[in-house]
Design a protein around this nucleic acid. Sequence first.
DNA 1: GCTTGTGAACGAATTCACAGCT
DNA 2: AGCTGTGAATTCGTTCACAAGC
Lengths: 214, 214
Amino acid sequence: MERNANVPGATIQRLPAYLRCLLQAQTNQMPLVNSGSIAEMCGTNAAQVRKDFSYLGELGTRGIGYDVGELIGHISRVLGIVERRRAAIIGFGKLGGALFGYSGFGERGFEIVALFDADPDKIGTTAGALTVSGMDEVESVLRGQGVEIVILATPAAVTQSAADAVVSAGVKAILNLAPVSLSVPDDVAVRQVCLSTDLQILSFHLAQGGASER
Amino acid sequence: MERNANVPGATIQRLPAYLRCLLQAQTNQMPLVNSGSIAEMCGTNAAQVRKDFSYLGELGTRGIGYDVGELIGHISRVLGIVERRRAAIIGFGKLGGALFGYSGFGERGFEIVALFDADPDKIGTTAGALTVSGMDEVESVLRGQGVEIVILATPAAVTQSAADAVVSAGVKAILNLAPVSLSVPDDVAVRQVCLSTDLQILSFHLAQGGASER
DNA sequence: GCTTGTGAACGAATTCACAGCT
DNA sequence: AGCTGTGAATTCGTTCACAAGC
C-alpha cells in the first residue's frame, strides 16, 4: 500500500520496541532524543537505530537528533496503528481470559471486540461489554465485527480448525499462542508465540554456560 | 560446556519447533522421518532442516532419513532439557496464574517450583502444591529451590527491580513478559515476549496488503 | 534410487566509518 | 562541535546443487 515494502523485516520487528521507548521518553517530558539514547533504552546500538530509521525516511535533524512526537507519529503510521485495529480472541480459557483482562493492548493500538470458546458453559456468558460466542459463529461474527486480527488461545488439538474458520472469514493476520505450526494461505500473516519454545532456548544458554543473546 | 558453541543462533531458535514435530511424529507411530517431511510439518524447507541438523552432528542415515527417537534425544540434549529444569514465576496475577495452570511447560522440560507476588493478600495463599512468597523472599527462595529460569509476569513498573533481585540470586536465564526492556549483566540471557509487539508487526503486514512472513 | 551432509553461491542484516547538515 | 544519514565492508543466514553413503 505504502512504499514501506522496502523496509527490511528485521527493522520492522524492532519498531515496536522503539515505539515503546519513545512513548516513555514522551512521558518523561523529553522533547528530543538521539540515536544513542534510544539505543540505550532499547538495548541496541546507535548505528542500528539510525539505519532502521533511515529506511522510513529522513526523520531526524543532523546535529540535533529526533523529535519524539514526530517519530512516534511516523512509526505508528508505518505500523498501521494510527487508529485502533479490531481484534478477537478465540479460546476463552485461563490464558484467553488473562489476555482479555490485559489493558496493554488498548494502549498499544488494539481493541478486543469479540470472544469465542467451544465450551457450552461459557458461550453466552459476558466479559466486560462482550458476550462469548460459539465456534460455529466465528466466521459470521468476525465478518460482522470487521475483525482484522485474531488471537488464537485454543488447545493445540483444535487450533488448526479454528485457524481455518478465521481464514474463511477473510482475516489476514493471526497471532497463534498454541504450540502447533499452522498452515494457512500465504497471504495470511501468522506469528507464533510459544513460551515453552522461549524457555527451551533459554535452557540452551544455560547448557552452554555463557549467555549473550539477540 | 559442550561443543555446541558453534551452532548458529538461528538454528537454535528452530530446534524447539523441530522437537515439537518429532514428538508428534512419535505419537503417530512414525519411527523414521526425512528432511522433507520435517520441513513440511514445521513450515520450512528440507535444505534448512538438513543444514540445521548438520550443526549438531551426523544424525541421519543417507538413503533412509532420521530415526525419530534418536533425534528427539539428541535435540533434547542440545537444548539441555534431558532432565526438567526448575523455574519460577514472579507476578501471580491473571497472566502468572494462567501460566501456572498451563500443563505445557511440564511436558516440555520445565517444572514451576516457586511463585512470587507483591500483593499481601496473595502472599501465603497456595496454588497447587506451592505457596506464594513475597518479593522480599525472592533471592532466598530462588537459591533455596535451585531455580534456574525465572518468568517475569509483573507489571511493567516493577519489572526491572524484580529482575535485579533475580540476578542477585544468581539466576542466568529470564523470560520477560512485561513490556519493558531489561538491563541485566551480559552473562544473563533474557528473552522478551510481548504480545503487543507481535500484534503491531501483524498490523504492519495488514497495512502493506500482502503478507508472507517467517 | 533415495536421502543425507556440505562446500559454494547467494542474499540479508549488522557494523563501520565518514561525508553532509545544522 | 555534534548528530544524522548512508555507502562500503563485514558478518551472519539461507539456498543451491551435488558428492558421498546406504
